[in-house]
């Protein structure tokens, strides 16, 4: 476990109480009490496609999501820069950072993998804001980790709806909106063709399993390429 994630988890005791004030839900640090299956020994189902969306990168340039969910194995997640829920965006990005460090030890797999983080809040999370946020997480420049935001909420909502990603504004005990966006922590594993093959919510956010899933997709892709290569040319 990285030093950063260890520190984050160490903070969760205090964070749990803070979370209870906002959302006294059942969220707990995910437990893993089993041996994960070996890569390639199981099948990841084809859950759904990935829609396109017009977004902005950290330099404010217009980009299309479709260009970042194909050609590589992609982990897509949603966040907002001022999220302070210790089991929300900071936790998911700490898991991604841990995964990135594992991928850096396997350069061939690293080149086949990317992360994409899309902001929930186009109003606050401008390209400049997500650029600052990205510096906290990106690390090795050779690894492709895209931080994106939307030009506006109307461009974002169809993407959220299509991906089944909920978001709402939390209210306090008096029913007043708070500065917290309630969202189910979801991370989408997308294969090289743009098909969602796994969805991780908090209970399933296990870096070891996620790495095995990435390797499973890589093996599947290699096997498909091998079959294609072995096929006689007409």
């Amino acid at each position: 476990m990285t030093k950063f994630l260890a520190c984050l988890l160490a903070l969760l005791g205090a964070g749990g109480a803070a979370r209870a004030a906002v959302d006294p839900g059942a969220a707990v640090i995910p437990r893993m009490e089993y041996e994960p299956l070996a890569p390639g020994s199981y099948r990841l189902e084809r859950i759904q496609g990935t829609p396109d969306a017009r977004l902005l990168d950290t330099r404010g340039r217009t980009v299309h999501l479709r260009d970042f969910v194909r050609g590589k194995i992609t982990l897509l997640t949603f966040f907002y820069t001022y999220c302070v829920d210790p089991l929300g965006c900071p936790y998911s990005h700490a898991v991604l950072r841990q995964l990135r460090e594992a991928l850096e030890r396997d350069p061939a797999l690293m080149r086949r993998t990317r992360f994409v983080s899309v902001s929930f809040d186009p109003g606050n999370d401008t390209p400049a804001a997500i650029a600052r946020y990205a510096k906290l997480w990106r690390g090795d420049a050779r690894f492709e980790w895209r931080f994106l935001t939307a030009p506006g909420v109307p461009q974002l909502l169809p993407l959220l709806d299509d991906m089944g990603q909920d978001v709402s504004v939390d209210k306090d005990a008096q029913g007043r909106p708070t500065r917290t966006l309630h969202h189910m922590l979801k991370m989408f594993l997308i294969d090289e063709t743009g098909t969602v093959r796994e969805i991780y919510t908090l209970a399933f956010l296990q870096p070891t399993v996620m790495l095995n899933d990435i390797r499973t997709l890589a093996l599947e892709s290699a096997a498909a390429a091998g079959v294609a290569a072995a096929r006689p040319r007409m």
């Binding site: 006294p24 059942a26 909920d166 709402s168 209210k171 909106p177 309630h182 189910m184 209970a203």
Partner: peptide
Amino acid sequence: GVAALLSLPAASAFADETCNSPYISKLIK
């Protein structure tokens, strides 16, 4: 602002039974 924000789907769930999937959003007491 409050009025507009309240037009959003609210996350103010207050209850649940114990028979749901453990990872359903907003399991609140």
